[in-house]
Design a protein around this nucleic acid. Structure first.
Ligand code: MN
Ligand code: MN
Ligand code: ZN
Ligand code: ZN
Lengths: 168, 168
DNA sequence: ACGCAAATGAGACTCATTCTCATTTAGCAG
DNA sequence: CTGCTAAATGAGAATGAGTCTCATTTGCGT
């Protein structure tokens, strides 16, 4: 795993700069996270590590995710569910999300015009933005073709789609 | 309270249509909610009712909020914190939020161009949007002038600003 | 005023996340 | 290589928002 190992090194650099240590648990987590190419949650990570017989506690997973977010290697995102999701940041820059409330799939997009307009709005309100969070919920193309109706707005909450729920 | 009473009637209409009842608790809550002109959370509501010696349980508050959201009279919003906030919907339509991570103040805005651009993006992805959620976090004008620095992105979470935390 | 479906309150429960603390370990100095 | 010590870990307790249960109460149509 050469690509993934590079990320471990990146994390180690960050840790050293903070006087922190690279442990086996942290390295395993980084390798796992940079092998997942979608939006995952903490429980999914815990499950995958268990699958691979990598011994690691829930607390360490949360603690390491926090460090990875601080290092800028991982982003924590809201996808309309009541718990956080994460995604690794590898070169590809900022983007926002379209979330299908029927199947749970997530489409990423980046739109410079949208971003520019936000800056404009902030300027008008004399507001200095540091970051933003945009999710557009709705129905993806394949779900629409299957004739699925969007949930009533008040019921939208991606029921039963989280990784844990699927496997429980 | 003539204005507020109109909202109680609106809610009663909705309830009747659903075969549900207008109770004293529900009426009190509606009156309270339509007297609050900012973004509140469930605990704040519980506290305010206690202050006024209106006996009402936490469960009833959550249940009534759910009904109010269904009726369209209240919106549930994310403001970057890890619990929900609510706002009443009175005539004024959809808007998004600028949230100051220093003082917690919230600026509302509505921008047709921003909305239109989102529709465009969805069309391009063949995605049928039902609603969206946009928060821009940053520093408001008065905080900026006081020389407050924005929190590092990873630490942004409006520490100590929720109504409950302030009063605990 | 009656009857009963709907509503309520108290507190148990869930679930994500954080914390505590006793024990282990990474990494550095010698 | 060895010892030292601050940092890290795991187990499980704690927290906090939100939901649920069920015995009791109440709104409201008749
Ligand atoms: Mn993404
Ligand atoms: Mn608002
Ligand atoms: Zn879909
Ligand atoms: Zn401010």
């Amino acid at each position: 795993m050469p690509v993934v190992q590079r990320e471990v090194n990146r994390f180690q650099n960050f840790l050293q700069g903070q006087g922190l240590k690279l442990t086996g648990e942290r390295a395993s987590l980084v390798r796992e996270i940079f092998s997942i190419h979608y939006h995952f949650d903490a429980d999914e990570l815990l499950f995958k590590m268990k699958e691979k017989s990598v011994k690691i506690s829930r607390a360490t997973i949360y603690r390491t995710l926090e460090l990875l977010v601080k290092s800028g290697m991982v982003r924590r995102v809201h996808l309309g569910e009541d718990h956080y999701h994460y995604e690794h940041v590898s070169g590809n820059s900022h983007h926002d999300h379209l979330v299908c409330t029927t199947c749970g799939s997530v489409i990423e997009f980046h739109d410079p015009l949208l971003e520019a307009r936000q800056i404009e709005i902030c300027g008008r309100k004399r507001f200095t933005p540091t970051f933003h969070n945009l999710q557009i919920l709705g129905v993806c193309d394949s779900c629409r073709r299957k004739g699925e109706q969007p949930d009533a707005p008040d019921r939208v909450k991606m029921i039963g789609l989280s990784a844990m729920q699927l496997r429980k």
